[in-house]
Design a protein around this nucleic acid. Structure first.
Lengths: 396, 396
DNA sequence: TGTACTTTCATCTCGCAATGGACAAAGTCG
DNA sequence: CGACTTTGTCCATTGCGAGATGAAAGTACA
């Protein structure tokens, strides 16, 4: 029977833990400069954190012209598990308390196999990470799923691409299995948190994080916090209408963004191009595999295939239309583009940028960076560990 | 030389003041039930508030089966001024500290006359309210203007419909003139605050407040706070594209919402209808006045004119398209529709509702109330006093 | 109707914890 | 080696919370 990880006793301790997490080992005085606490109070709280084992002494810091200070660091034995379940793959990573990725595994996986099968695989990945000597247990785990989640309960609600998951008590089940606190969130929100923690959005308090993959979603960060909406479906921009009389969408409407530039739409359009003989590259791939995937388009574009590039450019324009509206509405300080877009990122980014800068008002786009995410595949898992560590490092 | 209004010394006092503002006179025990303070601390803080004069004793409360309690109320002599400058009118109101409107004046006014002329009129209105015996001075004033504002400085930035206002230091100038703290914000944000303070959105923490008038804007409330965006232009939804090849807009793009359903677009379309002989009602009004105004369309619709009603319905559908996208994105708990829409409110509301419920995802619209604002013309001024009172009732 | 009992509110007091300043310890630099 | 800087610890003062006490009102019942 393993003891539960200690928790900070008050907001000051929580604040100190987060500082140590984000800034690394620090002297007491350096910490004092970051928080509004008297030196005595600071010493008392650190003393208590040392007692609980949440932080440890960590040698002497370099002198700054006086007595050398004892560094203090967050307990290096803490381990967080981050899991990012996508539509077609699953990522798992272990981090230490400073959210540095110690190990990362990735597997293809069809989320439609249902929660039981998926979590068997997830637990196997977690066990594998432990076997590699990276962790003995986990002090907390964050789980991302590709659909809306009722966050407080950690339960998916009406997820369109996850049949069999509706209402499955992910948080409860995994918390039981892993023996540690678990939080569940939408994968896009976690990507946003990841980029905020360790990526391009480190110093931005209001930003949007658009993930282009099988679906298209958007993480919303307001005043440093993720906005999830009243039913957990905020950021679901795939079904915003981009064309009054556009293609029919699985959701029942017409002209949705995803009906023009989701994974399925891309495959549909690419197949049509291949069959119409408009792209030798795509036709070859279609013949070889019998069917095309988004990765084929991506690869073809990377190889310079004009038709594929055009598809991506058009998709970027459509996405840019939606983002332009969101930028006018939300006036963010940054827009981060991410998702499974290996290689085609810059093409996509360029057409999104063009469209947003053309269509949004100058006041909102004045110095609005629209950039690719820095973390790529690990954004989700890093965000997941950020989520759970924020929870663990908050007063119990 | 008048003494500045006292300010609370700490967050607890601020919290108590806001409770007394929103819930009215309370006994000490009733207050204790609302905040997490020990009886002793509560007594001490109230004692101090009594000393500063921010609250006063207010007789005995009805007994609840024991010794009767002494009620305490927020200083009834406090006065806040709320000013709502619209494109074509200005509203001013005085409230007490509980934000009850004691007097309200409204005048037509063209904002294009520039800040100096406008503030002359505003100060005259304020003086008139004082002459009516409603106030001797003001303890704070909130000002709403129809354009983006850099909130911390209280300065309009690049306001499209306010020539001559760009960079005018409203806050500084008015603070000087009125001799009290002043805050300046976008009129739509103030409308949202007003509906949150005293209207339909009292118990909602995340909602959108769409104002349809000369322009079309949207107040965004996240977690109880107004989101203004990084440059103060959040909620500027008038230039979101609703039609890929739509009408040209003053902003340089085509198909903007305002190009189809702003005040100017409405006049343009109504005039066309009148001249084409499609509406006798509108033609009559055009002949009588030489030109049409949005109010003419409103009145004609109220009189049952089919062409005018159709214009409003179409505009509602267009607005609904945009709101549907915002609902998917933001997943609010309520959408409030307001603005200068006397009479035509329900027609507009109905077509907006139809469009949003049709186009947004069920999870986001599940139990999403889309309602008309309750406060009508006073929403802005009430929101303005709420804004400044939140400021006054915060630790200095 | 009068008296005893109960309920509620306000204040007082005391112990504990927090705070901020003083002081001692440990270094660096000239 | 001494002046100066930085860091760690101690302690008196202050602030806070919870129980005890007394005052003021309602309630039950003879």
């Amino acid at each position: 029977m393993r003891r539960m990880t200690a928790r900070p006793a008050n907001v000051d301790q929580a604040r100190l833990l987060r500082l140590l997490r984000d800034l690394g080992p620090q002297s007491r005085v350096a910490l004092g400069g970051q928080v509004e606490l008297s030196r005595s109070k600071l010493a008392v709280e650190i003393e208590r954190l040392l007692e609980t084992g949440l932080v440890v002494q960590d040698g002497l810091a370099a002198s700054r012209g006086g007595r050398r200070s004892h560094n203090v660091r967050i307990a290096p034995s803490l381990r967080f598990l981050g899991v990012d379940i996508g539509a077609t793959s699953v990522d798992a990573a272990v981090t230490n308390a400073e959210l540095e990725v110690l190990g990362h595994l990735s597997e293809p996986l069809d989320v439609r196999e249902g929660p039981v099968a998926v979590f068997e695989r997830v637990l196997a990945l977690a066990a594998k990470l432990c076997e590699e000597g990276l962790a003995e247990h986990f002090d907390g785990a964050g789980i991302g799923v590709p659909g809306p989640v009722r966050f407080p309960e950690g339960v998916p609600v009406a997820p369109p691409i996850m049949p069999g998951w509706d209402g499955f008590p992910i948080r409860e089940v995994l918390s039981q299995e892993l023996g540690c606190p678990v939080l569940v969130d939408n994968d896009v929100n976690l990507m946003a948190l990841g980029e905020q923690q360790a990526g391009v959005a480190r110093s931005v308090r209001d930003f949007l994080c658009v993930k282009v993959g099988t679906g298209i979603g958007c993480g919303i960060v307001v005043a440093g916090d993720v906005h999830r909406g009243v039913t957990g479906s905020a950021g679901d921009i795939g079904h915003i209408q981009v064309d009054l009389d556009g293609s029919p969408c699985a959701c029942g409407n017409t002209g949705c963004l995803e009906a023009h530039f989701g994974g399925n739409a891309l495959v549909r359009d690419a197949t049509a191009l291949a069959e119409a003989g408009r792209s030798a590259e795509l036709a070859g791939r279609l013949e070889a595999m019998g069917r095309l995937t988004p990765e084929d388009v991506s690869a073809a574009a990377g190889a310079g295939d004009a038709a594929s590039l055009e598809l991506i450019r058009l998709g970027g324009t459509r996405t840019g239309q939606v983002i332009a509206g969101l930028v006018s509405f939300f006036n963010p300080g940054m827009v981060v583009i991410g998702g499974g877009l290996t290689g085609l990122g810059h093409t996509l980014l360029a057409s999104i940028r063009t469209q947003v800068y053309r269509q949004s008002l100058p006041l909102a786009t004045g110095n609005l960076p629209i950039v690719l995410g820095e973390l790529g595949q690990v954004a989700g898992v890093v965000g997941a560990t950020r989520l759970i560590s924020d929870h663990i490092f908050s007063p119990s």
